[in-house]
Computed example of a mutant assay.
Amino acid sequence: MPYTATRSIDDTVVAITGASAGIGAATARTLVDAGARVVLGARRTDRLTALVEELGEQNAVAVPGDVRDPEYNDALVAAAVDRWGRLDTVIANAGIGAYGGILDLDDTLLREMVETNYLATVWTVRSAVRRFRAQGDGGDIVIVSSVAGFRGGADEAVYAGTKFAQVGLGGSLDRELRAEGIRVTLICPAGTSTEFAIGAGREEGSPELDAYLRPGDVAHAARVVLEQSRSVRTTVWQLWSAQQQS
């Protein structure tokens, strides 16, 4: 039986961080296919520009910048309001990772990982919640975390710590915001074949990537969550490839 949505997201407005590649770009494509309009956030202006050209300027707008800056997240929300008059969903997807023992990675990289994966998620959520409350009709917060947020692994202690923090944030926000009609969902994929950690523990073209999830698998999960009836909320969705060892 084909998948059938229980709620249309046609003409809804979705802001996506980390949208220049991988899961973020795949999610933008999937949601535009479902009729949504997207605000694309990331640091790589050239990638965002190309994605807007692909999706069409009537469907997408790019806001280049650094998600670690709280003011940037406000600008991302403002772009949605300026262009389409509202914001319905924010997808906090920006993230970086690197593999190595606790003494193997330099201080600068570790700080960037914590700030990008956790603090930036907080700033993105805060900007969106302010807008949702101003609109007064609820909204959706989707945090793209990881199965590493439930079970740490060797050589990924700091990365896993940031994902545990996202899981704690999402669970607490669900309890805080659901009475206002703001749904909070954690989408937690296992290994996904993207640019993630390439050159920092993963190698491009590595055979192990063939057994991983594809970005579109995670994007589909985001679409399903948003197309659920407003009477339903999904708090945690873990995804594993059928081929990857858990």
Rank of each mutant, 00 (worst) to 15 (best):
L213Y: 03
Y212T: 08
V218D: 04
G171F: 02
G138S: 03
T124S: 15
S127M: 04
A197L: 04
G170A: 02
G191T: 13
F150S: 12
L177F: 04
A154D: 12
I198Q: 12
A148Q: 12
D210Q: 15
T185A: 10
F132I: 05
C188V: 08
R175W: 11
G161M: 10
R183H: 09
G181C: 08
S206T: 11
R130Q: 09
V158E: 04
S127V: 08
A134E: 12
T162V: 00
R130V: 05
A157H: 07
G171V: 11
V184Y: 03
G171W: 11
S145K: 04
E176F: 05
C188P: 10
K163D: 02
A200P: 01
S193W: 11
A200D: 12
S127H: 07
I198Y: 08
E204W: 15
A165I: 05
S146H: 03
G170R: 09
R133E: 06
D155C: 07
G161R: 02
R214Q: 13
G201F: 08
T124M: 10
F132D: 03
A154N: 10
A165P: 00
V144R: 09
F150I: 04
G139P: 00
I143W: 00
A165H: 03
G153I: 14
Y159H: 05
A179D: 13
G161A: 14
T162H: 02
E180K: 04
R214W: 08
P207R: 09
E208F: 12
R126F: 10
T124N: 09
F196M: 11
R202A: 13
V158L: 12
S193T: 13
E176L: 01
P207I: 05
L209A: 15
F164L: 04
F164A: 11
A148L: 11
G152R: 07
V158R: 02
R130L: 06
A190D: 13
E176V: 04
A211K: 15
R130Y: 02
G170W: 02
A200E: 15
L177H: 09
V125R: 04
Q135N: 01
I187W: 05
I187R: 03
S145A: 12
L209Q: 14
E195K: 07
G161H: 00
Q135W: 06
T185C: 11
F150K: 11
R131I: 11
E204F: 14
C188S: 14
R126K: 15
S193V: 03
A211D: 15
E156L: 14
